[in-house]
Design a protein around this nucleic acid. Structure first.
Length: 313
DNA sequence: GTCCAGGATTCAG
DNA sequence: CTGAATCATGGA
């Protein structure tokens, strides 16, 4: 298979600068699972049918695409929020009165929500339950290689719902999906008959969109919130995962709160850009730099054994 | 070998 | 409605 014929590197014009560390957080911080970085710091990714490279040059961000493809620059710019619309939303967050949020924003200045395709977001987060980001990336990569259209140079698009629905058990098994294979197949079977599902979903209010997403196999509250946020651009959506549960407990004192209650708090407290706030808190918590004024003293409770001598089968 | 992962589903109470 | 068990797999 022939290698991709890359264009020369060119400046990537964005309204706001993206620091080196923030770019890594953005491309490999659990939003998208389709980017890889090499030793030279070159990020290579596929979104939709676009193959692109991004790196930090001497004078800011640079991009490259495949020779002869004219749409790459615009696609990369849109993907990375080139107009800077999110800067205003960050400014609107309650960072003045919220020192935790303020520190989280300072830890990853310029962090943005990627504007992903709904299809990409839904496939990625269908794979995400009970998995680490590295493994989600591996699952998605295998899905693309095994089932998606080849784009040249060894790159593949993500499989369509039709391709996914037609996949055999052994094909899905080879993608190391575990029990998530049934989620993907189930959702694929539901959506393959709706080629315009994304447009139809996009037309819904966020509340209705979340409900519609949750009706799909393998999509619960958290995955629905992620797909709404990352795939449908609903920046008010506030996904509550294990990291956010810990973050809101340690930083705001909400120990023992149910995820639904934390989600309600997040939307009320952070407002129309709650999803952005969530991503800053998520990144800071994962990096271990989140302020935790309400963290409990270490280990107040003793963990109980899961099973007491019950016979195993 | 053990533990756990950007959870969802199912079932018991 | 809430809480717990179960799910399949691989990396630490």
């Amino acid at each position: 298979m022939k290698a991709v014929a890359w264009t020369a590197w060119r400046p990537l014009r964005l309204a706001d600068p993206v620091p080196l560390q923030t770019l890594r957080e953005q491309l490999d911080g659990g939003q998208s699972f389709r980017w890889n970085v090499d030793e030279a710091g070159v990020w290579t990714g596929v979104f939709g049918r676009t193959i692109a490279g991004v790196r930090h040059g001497l004078d800011g961000l640079e991009w490259r695409g495949v020779e002869g493809v004219t749409t790459t620059e615009a696609a990369v710019q849109a993907y990375l929020d080139e107009a800077g619309g999110q800067a205003q939303l960050v400014a609107s967050l309650p960072w003045r009165s919220d020192a935790v949020l303020r520190a989280a924003i300072a830890a990853n200045p310029g962090l943005r929500i990627l504007r992903q395709d709904p299809h990409e977001a839904l496939i990625g987060f269908l794979c995400s339950s009970n998995k680490r980001i590295l493994q989600i990336r591996q699952m998605v990569a295998r899905l693309a290689t095994a089932l998606g259209d080849p784009l040249g140079g060894g790159f593949h698009a993500l499989p369509t719902w039709t391709q996914l629905a037609a996949a055999t058990d052994s094909q899905l098994k080879a993608c190391a999906l575990g029990y998530r294979a049934a989620f993907l197949r189930g959702t694929a079977q539901r959506l393959q008959a709706r080629p315009h599902w994304a447009e139809e979903f996009q037309a819904l209010s966020t509340i209705d969109l979340l409900a519609e997403l949750r009706s799909l196999p393998g999509v619960g509250p958290k995955v629905a919130a992620c797909v709404a946020l990352f795939g449908f651009g609903r920046l008010e959506s506030f996904p509550v995962d294990t990291w956010v549960v810990q973050a809101l407990a340690g930083a705001y004192g909400f120990h023992g709160w149910a995820p639904a209650r934390l989600e309600e708090f997040g939307r009320a407290h952070f407002g129309p850009a709650a999803g952005l706030a969530q991503q800053y808190l998520f990144a800071a918590a994962r990096a271990g730099v989140l302020l935790q004024p309400y963290a409990l003293p270490a280990v107040p409770v003793k963990t109980r054994p899961k099973s007491r001598g019950r016979a195993r089968r």
